[in-house]
């Protein structure tokens, strides 16, 4: 990208080439249409300019022409729609093997947390060639995660998760912008996406990492006393959370929902919203008790239970939180 007069953005993800191709197609069609209109108007305006002794010839119209210039553009537009929808579908469907990164937006910074426990602010380090899925939420107003070089953007909302994924292809440093107006320093709420070669990334990741995110979540799970009801050995007062992630859950009111990130999040913050069939609405809300970062850790932990790893298997012998500690378990 020219630093003096950039006419085209950097292209650094698997998606950027596809978006560019569609954009060029649209530019071509739009260019042809614009030229058609401009040239017709100019030619007609000159050819039929008023000359003494020549009167205008009255023409009522032509139904065939009208139908033609309604239907043909429509079919051209259909190609825009289909191509655009295909790209959108890819952009919105993260591959299963994605590395997950949690993003918490607030006025006016991006807080990033890797599964390995690495935290960064206004910077996101990712390796080349790896699918990365961002699980994002906002602490306050609506923000939008925008990386022009990847051609991706997703609003980040308070109170729920939205996701975004990409696969970087070219190492380098790229702009991260907030694209949804969020207050005073909206234009300062940016940063960099640092795309690294895998070995550099591994080296970066090795420095200064704390515990992995699901480990933090596991500790919280114990601290908050979740384990007293959500037991892994016998049926507790709450559902067993082993392997529920991304599985359908039958609810008390007969509906079935998929236990995705948003469901897990909602069940922690607003437990009565979707009661699992056969259980009572006895869980208190953790709204205001856990921060968004802690919530991310809990969600990461519940998700990790669905993966048959040795770490989660060991949990079954985990003692429940000490029973004599008041755990705020009554309906308020």
């Amino acid at each position: 990208m020219s630093k003096f007069l950039p006419l085209w953005p950097d292209s650094a993800s698997t998606m950027s080439g596809q978006v560019d191709a569609l954009y060029i197609y649209l530019l071509l069609v739009a260019g042809i249409m614009t030229a058609l209109i401009f040239i017709s108007v100019t030619v007609l305006a000159i050819k039929y300019r008023r000359v003494a002794g020549r009167e205008a010839t009255q023409i009522e119209g032509s139904t065939i022409l009208e139908i033609g210039w309604s239907i043909i553009p429509f079919f051209v537009m259909l190609t825009f729609f289909i191509w655009g929808a295909v790209i959108y579908f890819k952009e919105r469907t993260p591959p299963a093997d994605s590395t997950e990164v949690y993003v918490v937006a607030k006025q006016w910074m991006w807080k990033i947390e890797h599964m390995e426990g690495q935290r960064e602010i206004n910077e996101l380090h990712v390796p080349v060639g790896q699918n990365v899925k961002l699980i994002m939420t906002s602490q306050d107003v609506i923000h939008s995660f925008f990386v022009p070089a990847f051609r991706i953007k997703q609003d980040v909302l308070p109170g729920r998760y939205t996701t975004l994924w990409f696969k970087a292809t070219v190492p380098g440093r790229y702009h991260l912008f907030c694209a949804e107006y969020c207050g005073t320093m909206h234009s300062g709420m940016g940063g960099d996406i640092v795309v690294m070669e895998p070995q550099d990334y591994a080296q970066w990741m090795a420095g200064g990492a704390t515990a992995p995110l699901q480990e933090t979540g596991k500790e919280l799970f114990a601290q908050l006393g979740c384990a007293t009801c959500h037991r892994f050995d016998v049926q507790g007062r709450g559902p067993n959370l082993t392997a529920i992630y991304n599985k359908p859950v039958l609810l008390e009111d007969g509906r079935t929902v998929i236990a995705d990130e948003n469901y897990v999040r909602e069940s922690i913050l607003n437990p009565t919203a979707k009661i699992v069939s056969g259980f009572k609405p006895v869980m208190p809300t953790f709204q205001g008790i856990v921060t968004d970062e802690q919530l991310n850790a809990l969600v990461a932990y519940v998700k990790s239970l669905a993966q048959p790893t040795p770490g989660s298997a060991g949990l079954q012998n985990q003692p429940a939180a000490s029973p004599d500690q008041p755990q705020n378990m009554q309906v308020q």
Binding site: V19, F81, A179
Partner: peptide, 16 residues
Amino acid sequence: GLFLATLGIDVHVTDT
């Protein structure tokens, strides 16, 4: 406007 109606393009150019 048609660019913006096209989903794949809109994601990149909306709010810009």
